[in-house]
């Protein structure tokens, strides 16, 4: 296609098709999972929730790696900056969905929408961290200034995740006798559950990759248009200056 409109290509078409197929399979199999004794039908959420969580970790991992590649002088390229920002945005979507589906699962299982469980708290903190990162990226600045600033912020955010992990882990285990591990899914898994869960991982990974390719291309277009409009504006000013008496 010579007259391509949009950010699609052969790559995104095949990725998108694979993602759609895997997602459809996950939903179809997930909804027909047998009800378990402990959790009843709610165990069906296992097809999507762990996959979403995995995709969010993957997205933030990619952000950190891309930021490091930008900061390393030999591999510095604007593509890493765009990749880092795009991946973080998709990661925020996946983290929000992880929290939403976890909450929906927790309400009938634990009886409350939210439990101050270590993993939940950590996910919520990570969501806040990356919302801050995205807000920082939206601050108007020259492209390379924005890239340096956000690459450093991304690495700072990743560095604090293990500290956060230990803080919430110790906090919850020291202050709460009853461990939630007994009621989380994972203990009563048998073959079919593991299989569907893995399919969910695959589906969410494919969805992430497909979104990422599109999002990076959108980010590149955004930057190019910004530059163009700046050039046009400069050009107009120059012409005005020549015309002025």
């Amino acid at each position: 296609m010579t007259n391509r409109t949009g950010t699609a290509s052969a790559l995104t078409l095949s990725l998108g098709l694979a993602a759609a197929l895997a997602l459809a399979g996950t939903v179809a199999l997930g909804l027909t999972l047998p009800a378990t004794v402990e959790q009843g039908e709610y165990s069906r959420l296992i097809a999507i929730h762990p996959g979403l969580a995995w995709a969010s970790y993957l997205a933030f991992g990619v952000t950190a790696a891309a930021s490091a590649l930008w900061l390393w002088p030999r591999t510095r390229s604007s593509r890493w900056d765009l990749l880092a920002g795009s991946s973080a945005e998709i990661g925020v979507v996946f983290t929000a969905l992880t929290l939403a589906t976890g909450s929906i699962w927790g309400r009938p299982t634990w009886g409350v929408w939210w439990v101050w469980d270590a993993r939940l708290t950590l996910s919520a903190l990570m969501l806040a961290l990356y919302l801050g990162y995205l807000a920082l990226r939206r601050v108007p600045a020259p492209v390379d200034v924005r890239a340096r600033r956000s690459a450093i912020a991304a690495l700072l955010a990743v560095a604090v995740v293990p500290v956060n992990h230990f803080a919430v882990e110790w906090w919850r285990t020291l202050h709460q006798g009853r461990s939630l591990a007994q009621t989380t899914p994972g203990n009563d898994l048998d073959g079919i559950f593991v299989g569907v869960m893995l399919l969910g991982f695959l589906a969410m990974t494919l969805v992430y990759c497909w979104l990422l390719v599109h999002r990076v291309r959108v980010a590149r277009l955004e930057d190019r248009l910004d530059e163009q409009s700046l050039a046009v504006a400069l050009d107009e000013r120059r012409r005005e200056a020549v015309l002025a008496p």
């Binding site: 903190l125 806040a128 801050g132 807000a135 920082l136 955010a157 956060n164 803080a167 919430v168």
Partner: peptide, 23 residues
């Protein structure tokens, strides 16, 4: 210093700093 020189500094700094200092 990360949030400085930005017109939204007053709102950006808490959003950046508070999740980091949560531990």
């Amino acid at each position: 210093v990360l949030a400085t020189r930005s017109r939204v500094r007053e709102t950006l700094l808490p959003l950046l700093l508070l999740p980091v200092v949560a531990p």
